[in-house]
Amino acid sequence: MATKPSETILRRQLREISRNGIPGISAGLVDDNIYQWEVLLIGPDDTLYEGGFFKARLSFPEEYPLQPPKMRFETAMWHPNVYQDGNVCISILHPPGEDKYGYEDAGERWLPVHSPETILLSVIAMLSSPNPDSPANIDAARELREDYPTFKKRVRKLVRESAEAL
């Protein structure tokens, strides 16, 4: 059976991440499936998420790198840019091309030059700087803007629980 180009690309990218490492991030395959990666992100320093251990899954389509993967946190997450089911909502994970709603330029969306590394670095940046103006989780965005002490308390509780779960 012939290897798909996406498999070859993903194997190389996983090797690069494993070899070079990204501080605070580890990645590996789920059940030897190159299209399913399990990721562990350590909450970035100097953020509310600091000290947390967040498991996530990257699910790549066979059309990768022409189409983006999906990323979903498996560890509970309270963040304006993460849906309540754990799916991550950042521009580079949106399908390529023009945004039919006009919120994003095509250059902000998925481009084949992106890689798992750029995705994971973007998610770390998202944890460092939530964007409540374009929320996936409206309740988290509202709480961040209107009741920051409650937002902070809720996030710190999730961070503690994530560390205890390991």
Score class of each variant (00 low, 15 high):
Val159Gly: 09
Val123Ala: 02
Val39Gln: 00
Arg156Cys: 14
Arg11Pro: 00
Ser134Pro: 01
Gly43Arg: 07
Tyr49Asp: 02
Tyr83Asp: 00
Glu108Cys: 12
Asp105Gly: 14
Tyr49Met: 01
Asp32Asn: 15
Arg160Gly: 04
Thr150Tyr: 08
Glu50Tyr: 11
Pro65Ser: 13
Leu48Phe: 10
Cys89Trp: 04
Glu161Asn: 14
Pro5His: 08
Leu58Asp: 02
Arg11Glu: 09
Arg109Ile: 06
Thr8Leu: 13
Lys100Glu: 12
Ala76Trp: 00
Trp110Leu: 11
Asp105Ser: 15
Ile22Leu: 12
Pro68Cys: 14
Asn81Trp: 04
Arg57Val: 13
Leu158Phe: 13
Thr118Asn: 03
Ile90Glu: 02
Arg15Glu: 04
Leu120Cys: 07
Val113Glu: 05
Ser59Ile: 02
Leu127Asn: 07
Trp37Glu: 04
Leu93Lys: 05
Glu161Ile: 00
Asp105Pro: 00
Pro65Tyr: 00
Thr75Asn: 01
Val159Leu: 07
Leu10Asn: 05
Ala2Met: 08
Asn87Gly: 11
Cys89His: 10
Glu62Trp: 03
Asn87Arg: 14
Asn87Ser: 13
Arg160Ala: 15
Trp78Pro: 03
Lys70Cys: 08
Ala106Gly: 09
Ala106Arg: 10
Gln13Trp: 01
Ala140Met: 01
Glu164Lys: 15
Arg15Val: 06
Leu48Lys: 11
Asp32Pro: 07
Leu29Met: 15
Trp37Asp: 09
Pro96Ala: 15
Pro44Gln: 03
Pro135Ile: 09
Pro95Tyr: 09
Pro68Lys: 12
His94Trp: 01
Pro149Thr: 02
Thr75Val: 07
Arg109Met: 09
Pro149Asp: 06
Ala125Tyr: 10
Cys89Val: 01
Ala140Trp: 01
Glu74Ser: 11
Tyr101Val: 08
Glu38Tyr: 10
Glu146Trp: 06
Asn137Glu: 02
Lys100Ile: 14
Ala163Pro: 00
His94Phe: 04
Glu7Leu: 07
Leu127Ala: 05
Arg154Cys: 05
Glu63Tyr: 00
His94Ile: 06
Thr47Gln: 04
Gly28Leu: 07
Gly107Ser: 14
Glu143Thr: 15
Ala2Trp: 04
Met126Cys: 08
Leu93Met: 10
Glu16Lys: 15
Ala56Asp: 03
Pro80Met: 10
Leu111Phe: 10
Asn33Thr: 02
Met77Arg: 08
Ser115Phe: 10
Glu108Pro: 04
Asp105Gln: 12
Asp45Ser: 14
Tyr148Trp: 11
Glu38Asn: 14
Pro96Asn: 05
Glu98Cys: 09
Glu38Ala: 15
Glu108Gln: 15
Met1Gly: 14
Pro96Asp: 03
